[in-house]
């Protein structure tokens, strides 16, 4: 179809430092976001996502400095999420050099933020992050609900209806995380990914659960994801981005080989 499926490494950033480090390549300071982003660019990542987990509101602006530094030196798309609550937050991140801004909890508490941000900066800059969890009982048809606060707080919102709602309001892309799968290394929730991807016209990034390269390929082939996001399998050097792309290419998936 002419468009490569993307592989996106995701980095947690706390107070301007990459948390837990990244153990691959010959990075001297594995906590430095610029070094890590540069390393992933050389490795062939199609995009980089930073998730700002800075807890203290006093230090919220550290992410802006981080984004400025990375965007001045690494020339691939950069998505930044975490703590985005107002259109002003979106604008400040974009002005610092982010290409896309992820909106998560605030999309649930204030859905108009998605409309307002999208109208202001364009849908292509707005990524709505959706955290969904299975809520169906044994024997029932599958159903997923939106959760916030790291999967602890149910919202009563049906995940598919919510995804359609977010797309209608002006999201340019959805970052879909299965809270059942996140951290399990047992693969994406393919049923959820497929259901959401089929329900919306906008691209869907699958996230949560990647433990090996087959999981990435399955996310595209079975889940219908337009992009796949992973953290630990890349950060700890289990696989390189190049190996992941070659594996996907061998299964007939169009990727950008560098």
């Amino acid at each position: 179809m002419g468009l490569a499926r993307r592989i996106i490494p995701c980095l947690d950033v706390d107070n301007g430092r990459v948390v837990k480090g990244v153990q691959f390549l010959d990075i001297i300071d594995a906590g430095d976001p610029v070094n890590v982003a540069r390393g992933y660019n050389i490795a062939g990542a199609d995009e980089i996502t930073f998730l700002d987990i800075t807890a203290s509101s006093d230090n919220r602006d550290t992410i802006l400095a981080t984004v400025e530094q990375v965007a001045a030196e690494v020339f691939i798309p950069l998505t930044v999420g975490g703590g985005v609550r107002a259109v002003e937050d979106v604008r400040r991140l974009l002005n610092a050099g982010a290409d896309k801004v992820g909106i998560n909890t605030a999309a649930v508490t204030n859905p108009d933020l998605v409309d307002e941000s999208s109208a202001k900066v364009g849908a292509q800059c707005i990524v709505v992050a959706i955290d969904a969890k299975s809520v169906h009982q044994e024997g029932e048809p599958p159903r997923w609900e939106i959760f916030t606060h790291g999967g602890r707080k149910p919202t009563g919102l049906d995940a598919i209806e919510w995804a359609v709602n977010m797309a209608d309001r002006g999201a340019g892309e959805l970052l879909l995380t299965s809270m059942d799968k996140d951290g399990t290394k047992s693969g994406f929730n393919l049923g959820l990914t497929r259901a959401i991807s089929d329900a919306v016209e906008i691209p869907v990034i699958a996230s949560g659960g990647v433990g090996n390269l087959q999981h990435l390929a399955d996310g595209v082939i079975k889940g219908g994801a337009d992009a796949v996001l992973a953290a630990s399998i890349f950060h700890f050097g289990e696989y390189t981005i190049g190996e992941a792309k070659q594996f996907m290419a061998d299964q007939g998936i169009e990727v950008r080989l560098t």
Partner: peptide, 9 residues
């Protein structure tokens, strides 16, 4: 096909 056309072509 998804719209926006987003990614590497």
């Amino acid at each position: 096909l998804k719209v926006p056309h987003m990614g590497w072509s």
